[in-house]
Design a protein around this nucleic acid. Structure first.
Length: 808
DNA sequence: CGGCCCCGCGTTTTT
DNA sequence: CGCGGGGCCG
């Protein structure tokens, strides 16, 4: 048994596995068998007699937890199920369920996901008579989140001069008050947001010595994966829990820290040894995942970061292919290039599931979907939680929330007039007002009104309107305890009239809404079924309930990615963390996109971005391809791009570009065009490349009509509109439909430059800025961007067609 | 009170 | 371009 667990581990891994007592820091380079070490370590502990109940393993995603559990189960059997394993958020949400009443929340507290939180913040901003122009709910929410993650309470926030100065600087001096009110309201509603799950856990462990002691005794062994991405709140929780036994093992890679934007502190891993002086450090430096080329290329990239823990990652695998670097004319061709490459490799024996297309931002997936669908390549898109994000689904969930926790005014307001019951804004405000007068939640207020209408002395019309709603909720509350979860939710959909309203009108969006609701039921059904299986196996002792489902579902993002089938994967680089694929395409390698625009202002952000690129590259086992487009459509406009600086960061000996790679270091496309270096024969070859490929794919799209998995948007079931496909047509521009603008702008670019009314160095006069000199000209699709240095006003960017300029 | 229309603005990344 | 919020009208 023990031998089996340790078999095949290298010396460093083996050491990290068998020394499970005392604090350990495992620095694990990408692909160094980190998960293997973690799972083996836990399996080894169990084999040495450690009780599974005494192990707490914290991961970054639900999926990582599930996978780890499965792997341990394979090694040690079903005992693995008793290990407490999950994300920080899900583990401590559960812990709070058992203890929330000790810190002033109901045990049946509601979890607000980010949109719920944002809506509440929005209404508070309104109530405080602040303009939501200045106080953007998004920024306020981010600020509050930051405070919570740093364990700063509203009182501390208001007392902190630095924070106050920052807020004044940002023209939002009232944030402290919004934060305070937000916390009051959450508490009154019996609700916690994501950050509360960590903050309130900290409060609980700080204030309730007995509770803390109990968990310290229970969780004698704590393991934390992806430690480089923990934030302050998580860090302190671990610290508190580990205080007694110090059996804390953290695993991480500073080079893969990519969540600073949500409060992660890379310092946590950098200073672990200081926190636990008896720490043993293990370095896993051999990469078993990727070819030498990929590992070396990734090293050459990350070398450009200043803050790093010293380690030497290497691969002894084959050298492998060079990394293809592909430059295309415009964004849609990029998708074609990727699809073509996938097809080529698939023809040579690769499976669809061996491919991943990674992009920086979620919005980028569209073009790739059409290109793949058009070529009959099955794919799936990892998106957050698409099913649970739909309005109709959220409304059903809001009903359930209200039933589980009637104090939640946000849920109340959301459903009281859905479907329409004639309870409009005026009625709702009146109820709100009454509820404030009585110091009760809105639900309790209306329940009271309808119970004793005569004594109430409130407008009859309100009572009449609200009566049916009260009875509905009361009836459903009773049914909830009597019915199974799935049946109950179906009853909610029916008796609220939601289904009826959708069926009444035959609109296509109603059909999709019904489809979503059906998927929701299917999801709950699956949950119930799994719970029943566990019940039979003796792994749980209670019937599943809708309460339980709600709490688990609120914390899930990429549920249901049980490898359903053989498909190409599309996802953001962030969600690719921890995964690996034979062939990886990293697309949109352009300044402002990757690295993202926001990150280019500070060195720290830029370095995080570079680590993100490092993560992307090291997902590849056999080969990687990087691509960028010289023009990209953004908000309906076509814009010129600049190749990503990260392309220059990779040593060129590892790259194989479809253009002269020196151009990366030199001028951009429009600058080349300017000096007439653009080579027409290149463009001819370029076009015929796509023409030939297009002919070969033919028109016979027959996409698979399956997959109703709620979390992946699958390929379009109907044939995609042909004009989406980026196949440049050299013939008649008039026949090119939607592509016309973009293609023509490319075609005519060099000559258009000649058409520009102005030239570099020319002196012009502007009615406001006065006299200036044109310093730079950049062609746009239909205009020219002029960078002009004005005397007294500095440099301004103006559009040639709009700026009122006169030549001097 | 509800539906429709128009305008304005947005894009990091996720538990 | 597409969505959501706000304003206006029926």
């Amino acid at each position: 048994m023990t031998e089996e667990i340790l078999a095949g581990l290298n010396p460093a891994q083996r050491e990290a596995v068998i020394n499970y007592d005392g604090p350990s820091l495992i620095i694990a380079g990408a692909g160094s068998g980190k998960t293997r070490v973690l799972t083996s370590r836990i399996a080894y502990m169990l084999s040495q007699g450690v009780e599974p109940q005494s192990i707490l393993a914290l991961t970054f995603t639900n999926k990582a937890a599930r996978e780890m559990r499965e792997r341990i189960e394979k090694m040690v059997g079903s005992r693995a199920r008793f290990i407490r394993m999950g994300t920080f958020h899900s583990v401590f949400a559960r812990l709070l369920r058992e203890n929330a009443s000790k810190i002033g929340f109901p045990d049946s507290y509601t979890i607000y996901e980010s949109n719920d939180a944002k809506n509440l913040i929005k209404s508070i901003i309104k109530e405080l008579n602040l303009s939501d122009e200045k106080y953007k709910p998004q920024s306020v929410a981010a600020r509050i989140s930051m405070a919570k993650n740093c364990l700063i309470t509203p009182a501390a926030y208001l007392a902190n001069a630095t924070l106050a100065a920052e807020d004044s600087e940002a023209k939002m001096p009232e944030i402290g008050n919004i934060y305070a009110e937000y916390c009051r309201r959450c508490k009154r509603n019996g609700a916690m947001d994501f950050d509360d799950l960590l903050l309130q856990t900290n409060i609980l462990l700080r204030d309730e010595a007995e509770v803390l002691n109990g968990y310290q005794e229970r969780f004698r062994y704590i393991l934390v994966d992806e430690y480089q991405d923990t934030n302050m709140a998580q860090y302190i929780i671990v610290r508190r829990l580990a205080l007694k036994h110090s059996n804390v093992c953290v695993v991480g890679d500073d080079a893969q820290s990519i969540y600073a934007f949500r409060g992660a502190k890379i310092e946590n891993i950098l200073s672990f040894q200081r926190d636990y002086p008896t720490t043993k450090v293990y370095k896993l430096e051999q990469n078993y995942r990727s070819t030498q080329t990929i590992v070396d290329a990734a090293n050459s990239l990350i070398k450009h970061n200043s803050r790093r823990l010293e380690k030497r990652c290497f691969s002894e695998a084959e050298q492998g292919e060079k990394i293809r670097l592909v430059r295309v004319m415009e964004d849609s061709y990029e998708a074609v290039e990727v699809a073509m490459d996938i097809k080529d490799r698939a023809r040579n024996g690769a499976e669809w599931r061996d491919f991943a297309i990674l992009y920086r931002t979620n919005k980028q997936h569209g073009l790739f979907e059409s290109a793949l669908a058009r070529r009959n390549i099955p794919y799936r898109v990892y998106k957050g939680l698409s099913l649970l994000e739909h309005k109709d689904v959220r409304n059903v969930l809001a009903y359930i929330s209200l039933i589980l926790n009637p104090n939640d005014d946000e849920s109340f307001k959301r459903v009281v007039n859905y479907p329409a019951r004639g309870i409009g804004d005026t009625t709702i405000s009146r109820i709100e007002q009454l509820s404030q007068e009585r110091g009760k939640s809105m639900w309790h207020t209306v329940a009271e009104l309808t119970a004793t209408p005569a004594a109430a002395g409130v407008e009859k019309s309100i009572i009449r309107k609200v009566n049916d709603f009260v009875q509905l909720i009361q009836r459903l509350s009773t049914l909830r305890v009597e019915m199974g979860a799935c049946d109950f939710v179906k009853e909610v959909m029916t008796s609220t009239g939601i289904l009826h309203a959708l069926e009444l009108e035959h609109k296509p969006e109603n059909d999709t809404a019904k489809d979503y609701l059906e998927q929701l039921l299917a999801m709950i059904d699956t949950f119930e079924e799994e719970c029943h299986n566990d019940l039979e196996d003796g792994l749980r002792d209670t019937e599943p309930s809708i309460d339980e489902w709600m709490q688990s579902v609120m914390l899930q993002t990429d549920q249901d990615n049980d490898d359903d089938g053989n498909k190409v994967t599309l996802m953001t680089v962030h969600s690719a963390k921890g995964l690996e694929y034979d062939y990886v395409y990293i697309v949109g390698m352009e300044e402002g996109l990757f690295p993202s625009k926001r990150s280019t202002e500070s060195l720290a952000d830029l370095e995080e971005e570079r680590r993100l690129m490092y993560v992307a590259l090291t997902r590849a086992k056999r080969a990687a391809m990087l691509s960028y487009a010289e023009m990209r459509r953004v908000w309906g406009k076509t814009e010129n791009t600049i190749p990503s600086r990260f392309l220059k960061d990779i040593d060129k000996e590892y790259l194989d570009a479809n253009f002269d790679i020196e151009e990366l270091h030199g001028r951009s496309r429009w600058e080349r065009a300017l000096s007439n270096l653009d080579n027409n024969s290149d463009r001819g070859a370029y076009r015929s490349r796509y023409d030939n490929e297009r002919r070969s794919i033919g028109d016979g799209y027959n996409g698979q009509r399956r997959n109703t998995s709620p979390n992946f948007s699958t390929q379009q079931q109907q044939r995609p509109r042909p004009e989406i496909i980026a196949t440049p047509q050299p013939l008649d521009p008039a026949r090119q439909g939607m592509r016309k603008v973009a293609v023509r702008s490319f075609e005519s670019q060099p000559t258009e430059l000649g058409d520009c009314a102005y030239s570099i160095g020319e002196r012009v006069e502007h009615p406001k800025f006065g006299v200036g000199t044109i310093e730079r000209i950049e062609p746009l699709a239909t205009d020219h961007k002029l960078v002009i240095v004005f005397e007294g006003y500095g440099s301004k960017t103006l559009l040639a067609n709009y700026a009122k300029l006169t030549r001097i």
